[in-house]
Amino acid sequence: MRTLPLASALALALFLPSSPAVRAQGAAQGAPPTATQAEEGFRVVNRTGQEARTLNAVRAGRPDWAGNLLPRPLADGATYRLRPNPQAGCRFDIRLVLADGREAVKRDQEICTQREIALDASTVVAAGSAARPPSPETPPSPQAIPRPGVRAATGTGFLVAGERVLTNRHVVDGCDRVLVRGPDGRNHAAVPPARTDANLDLALLAVPGLTGPVLSFRQDPPLRRGEGVVAFGYPLTGLLSSDAKLTRGEINGLAGLRDNQDQIQISAPVQPGNSGGPLLDMQGNVVGVVVSKLNAQAVAGRTGDIAQNINFAVRGERAAAFLRAAGVTPAAARSNGADRSAADVGEIAERATMFIRCER
């Protein structure tokens, strides 16, 4: 983090009690969902061309499919309604096991805003190919093992495409080696050189073997002062716990220090180690890349007053333009729906946010 001087059964527990069999029958007969039903959860639609014998719905990334949620087979064209427990989060993996044994699967579905998940013939795979046994641990390569006793600095980054991680340039500047640790705890070695922009203080790392969900950049509407934001990253490594940290705040200003139009000012608390982490709006879309905080001691020495909680992030649209110039097309989304809880936004960020270790 740069400090800127003034001058610079578990499956069933995921769902609330309901009467899904009745609702499934009504939907199969073509009855449209009412407003009350829409508020109760989301619908899984069988459009595979044959009857489904099993329905599984588990939180995204879970290593098994848990239990069957269907009380009876689900006909082709029929709909089954589920009411997730509010504590279950917004991202689910969905599977139908069909009469011929094949499986229809959709993963990482956003069920808080997407009220209908349709599984059609394009989602069907061979029997057993969607099974989810826990992945065996693969020993890291020697290039991905942290070296003890070397001088190291840390920061944060996030996945913007397969094997591509966005962070700050100052996080990786002058490093002999850069290690990227994913949410699963495994380290990957970045391959130099990184694509960088000194003016924006951004860097795009190539990290072979690192894949997973990517974060979407907010496309519209334009940012406004006072909007809630969440910063997610790995501050003060070695002092705080090793897990990621979430802080909440607001957009205070639409420009950075001395009217820097490439940045926004935020009140979400950030510390050394947060650099390069995502700044998300309350729908889980990226609106910035955390970059710096004001040096309160320098300000106090010059003005006699202690500046409080003045932090900055690179604007999301500037970061997205940097990615496109580097040959990466970032995912984009509109933030037009209802705000989520900070916990839900944190779950979205956690799957794509990486710990970065710079060894010198």
Rank of each mutant, 00 (worst) to 15 (best):
S8L: 15
A9I: 08
A9T: 12
P17K: 04
G26Q: 13
A27K: 09
Q29Y: 14
P32K: 10
T36K: 14
Q37V: 01
R43H: 08
R53H: 15
R53T: 12
L55D: 10
L55R: 14
A57E: 01
L70M: 12
L70T: 10
C90M: 03
L98E: 01
R102N: 03
E103D: 00
D108K: 06
S122F: 05
A127I: 10
A130F: 01
A131Y: 01
P134E: 07
P134S: 11
P139Y: 07
P140L: 04
S141W: 02
P142H: 10
A144E: 09
I145N: 04
P146D: 09
R147N: 09
V160Q: 02
R186E: 03
N187K: 00
A189H: 01
A194Q: 04
D197E: 01
L210R: 00
P213W: 01
Q219E: 12
D220Q: 11
R224E: 14
G228W: 06
Y234A: 07
Y234M: 10
P235Y: 04
L240C: 03
A244E: 02
A244S: 11
L246Q: 11
R248Y: 02
R248T: 05
I251D: 02
D259Q: 13
D259L: 12
Q261F: 06
Q263V: 00
I264L: 05
A268F: 06
P278S: 14
Q283D: 05
V287D: 01
V299T: 13
A300F: 13
A300Y: 10
A300P: 06
T303D: 08
D305I: 12
Q308R: 15
N309K: 07
A320P: 02
V328C: 04
A331N: 06
A332C: 03
A342H: 03
A343H: 12
A352D: 03
F355Q: 02
I356L: 05
R357T: 09
C358N: 03
C358F: 04
